[in-house]
Design a protein around this nucleic acid. Structure first.
Length: 439
RNA sequence: GACCCCUUCGUCUAGCGGUUAGGACACAUCCCUUUCACGGAUGCGACACGGGUUCGAUUCCCGUAGGGGUCGCCA
């Protein structure tokens, strides 16, 4: 039998890391076994669900590259995939329960399911067989007086209707699973195989929920400058360890390595530093074009613009090993894009520190204006010639030139900066520094 | 409160009776270096506690403590 798994979010808010990882593991399972990954929106509670949230979740899943084979936007043979549109199916299933005497209606119209009140065992790939003693809880409500249905009921009905073979979800559902199994039995259906994955906790050990740092996919990752591949990779490492030498693994490697039996039982705390490390790793292996494409929205957000895209891309590429997030890029490259960059306080202090700095910059300018060709080597030759004339080491000239050309004390190689901004800008910036700082 | 799951360096983890308890992130130092980074090297650093079982427990069993979860006409 072909594997069928699903991610069944309730659209009450943005896609959350916990949900994203649940979707991720389901996706890995389907792709690993050549199965089907289904997206089902559990929007039975009209009061809490919104279309915006639903769209947001889809946006987040798309960004992470978790494509589904059946569900919203793609269709499939078991639709509709919004539970709010499946009332007739639920009514039919409720009738089955009525026929077998497993439900009863209360005075106000709510319908309850009669628990079997026997010990129930949940077979779980991660937790093993978990036995729940006969319950003493009140029978559970499956339909509200207004005719709408409750999660436990629709969840089970749809898992039956959509032919789910495995249910991979957060461990917070484990304690309720016996109720689902009871329902499956009442319908005369063998329950799917379960796999309850550990939860993601905050660094302090508390349960991570919306609002917490690093919890919302769109806000904390997409907009913060993460690469989807990095987030995908990092999330896999929370609660699962692939049998591999390295932790940095591509999607295809992760698919090939995936094994639900290797998923951990214990919860994992979110580690911001490590997520940044993963992102930095992925950032560095992007080509100049790819990096620029990803960086563009972040540059524009800081009002940076360019006329020569190749130069702009080269500028961004020159600082790729200095950042962990795309959002850090503008601060590292803004001076490539404008002449009115400001001078950092310590840069001004250092420039003014020695009176001979003005002379040094003047000599460098003279040599650079005479350079035969404007390449990095040409710039370097000019600086060395100036240093020789001044009888100092070329290395001693570099910081000064860096200060003048960027206003910053750190950045890519000085010759790279000069080469990319061009001769005119280089000479102009030296002149500006002489005029505005070393007066 | 009842029930369920969990417990190895600060964090993510390897380990599946005998290991100098390994790796990654972070941190520290050093090297490299025109800055900042990258990279390389080294270091710091853990089996929650108490009983068993065993020739021998991080590993198996029980208990305690601690953490998380579930007990809705939320999902």
């Amino acid at each position: 039998m072909s594997v069928r798994v699903r991610f069944a979010p309730s659209p009450t808010g943005d896609l959350h890391v916990g949900g994203a990882r649940t979707a991720l593991f389901n996706w890995l399972m389907a792709r690993k076994l050549g199965g089907t990954f289904i997206l089902r929106v559990e929007d039975t509670d009209g009061a809490r669900n919104t279309a915006e949230a639903s769209a947001g979740i889809i946006k987040g899943l798309r960004w992470l590259g978790l494509d589904w084979d059946e569900g919203p936007e793609v269709g499939g043979g078991c639709g509709p995939y919004f539970q709010s549109q499946r009332k007739a199916i639920y009514d039919a299933y409720l009738s089955k329960l009525k026929a077998s005497g497993r439900v009863y209606t209360e005075e106000n119209g709510a319908v309850r399911f009669k628990f079997s009140r026997t010990a129930i065992t949940v077979h779980d790939l991660v937790c093993g067989d978990v036995v729940f003693a006969a319950t003493e809880e009140p029978d559970m409500t499956v339909r509200r007086p207004d005719g709408s249905y409750i999660f436990h009921f629709v969840n089970v009905v749809d898992d039956i209707e959509m032919g789910m073979t495995h249910v991979i979800r957060g461990e917070d559902h484990l304690s309720n699973t016996w109720k689902h199994v009871d329902l499956f039995h009442a319908f005369g259906v063998t329950p799917p195989t379960y796999a309850h994955i550990p939860l993601i906790l905050n660094p302090d050990g508390s349960k991570m929920s919306k609002r917490d740092e690093g919890s919302a996919i769109e806000h904390s990752y997409m907009n913060a400058g993460y690469l989807a591949d990095a987030v995908f990779n990092y999330l896999c490492m929370l609660g699962w360890t692939p049998k591999a030498e390295n932790e940095k693994l591509s999607r295809s490697e992760l698919v090939a390595l995936f094994d639900p039996l290797a998923i951990h039982k214990s919860n994992a705390k979110f580690d911001l530093k490590k997520s940044l490390w993963f992102n930095a790793q992925y950032l560095r292996e992007l080509s100049a074009d790819e990096l620029f494409k990803h960086a563009m929205p972040f540059l524009k957000a800081k009002s940076l613009s360019w006329s020569d895209e190749a130069i702009a891309a080269a500028a961004v590429y020159s600082v790729r090993e200095k950042v962990s997030l795309l959002s850090e890029l503008p601060d590292w490259v803004h001076y490539f894009f404008r002449e009115d960059y400001s001078f950092e306080a310590d840069v001004i202090t250092k420039l003014k520190g020695k009176p001979e700095n003005a002379t040094l910059l003047g000599v460098v300018a003279t040599h650079l204006s005479a350079a035969n060709e404007w390449s990095e080597q040409g710039v370097l030759d000019g600086v060395e010639a100036a240093a020789k004339e001044l009888n100092i080491k070329p290395g001693a000239m570099m910081p000064l030139l860096r200060f003048a050309l960027s206003g910053q004390s750190r950045g890519p190689g000085v010759t790279t900066i000069a080469h990319l901004i061009g001769r005119d800008a280089t000479l102009g910036r030296i002149a500006r520094t002489l005029r505005e700082v070393l007066t």
